[in-house]
Computed example of a mutant assay.
Amino acid sequence: MDEQINYNLKQLGTWKRIFFMAVFSAIGALVRMILWAVIILQVASTLLTGKANQNILSFGRNLSIYTYHILLFLTFNTEILPFPFSTWNLTADLQLPEK
């Protein structure tokens, strides 16, 4: 058991993943703050014009999908790194493994 733990601790791939998880945790926090700004802008737009702003709608959807990709990576549901290490709109095409 101790040998297996020592082996796991020496795996470079594990430490790389932990590093990227820390990076994407910080990026995810920033994206969530931007999403709140999008929410506030959309509410203001709806109050002023009576309808949702299509540009803000599209931007909010893209940010939401990006957040989803980050969460998939952080929860080990995908090994594919989110943007900027993959294409921006890759998340919609991700094939999640069957569990």
Rank of each mutant, 00 (worst) to 15 (best):
Q54P: 08
Q54C: 03
N53D: 15
I65K: 05
S58C: 06
F73H: 05
S45Q: 05
I65F: 11
F73P: 04
I65C: 07
Q42L: 05
S64P: 01
L74K: 04
T46R: 06
L57N: 12
S58V: 07
F73I: 04
L41M: 12
L63M: 15
S64C: 15
S45T: 03
N53W: 08
L47I: 09
L71M: 10
S45F: 08
T49E: 12
S64Q: 10
G60I: 07
L41P: 00
A44L: 02
Y66W: 11
L57P: 00
N55T: 12
Y68K: 11
L57C: 06
A44K: 01
T49H: 11
F73M: 04
N55C: 05
F59N: 02
L71S: 07
A52L: 12
Y66M: 14
L48G: 02
I40V: 10
N53Y: 04
S45D: 06
I56W: 06
L72I: 00
I70P: 03
L57E: 12
I40P: 00
I56A: 13
G50N: 09
S58W: 12
Y68D: 09
H69Y: 01
Y68N: 07
T46L: 15
S58Y: 12
G50M: 12
H69S: 11
T49V: 12
F59M: 10
A52E: 07
T46S: 14
Q42A: 04
L74P: 03
T46Q: 02
Q42V: 03
Y66F: 15
S58P: 00
R61C: 09
I70L: 08
N55H: 05
Y68G: 03
I70R: 01
V43I: 14
K51M: 06
L71R: 03
L63I: 12
R61N: 14
S45A: 10
A52T: 10
R61P: 01
Q42C: 05
L74D: 02
L74Q: 07
N55F: 11
I65H: 02
S58K: 13
L71K: 01
I65P: 00
H69P: 07
F59P: 00
H69N: 13
T49N: 13
H69C: 09
T46D: 04
I65Y: 09
A44W: 01
L48M: 07
S64E: 03
A52V: 15
A44S: 02
L63T: 06
Y68P: 00
Y66T: 09
G50I: 13
F59L: 15
N62R: 14
F73D: 03
T49P: 00
L74F: 01
Q42M: 07
L72Y: 05
L48Q: 10
L63S: 05
I40Y: 05
I40S: 06
A44Q: 05
K51Q: 13
G50L: 13
Q42I: 01
I40L: 09
N53T: 02
I65L: 15
L71H: 06
N62F: 03
A44G: 00
T46W: 10
L63W: 08
G60M: 08
A44M: 03
L57T: 11
Y66C: 11
N62D: 15
Q42E: 11
G60Q: 09
L72C: 12
I56P: 01
L41T: 02
Y68S: 11
S45Y: 07
Y66L: 15
G50Q: 14
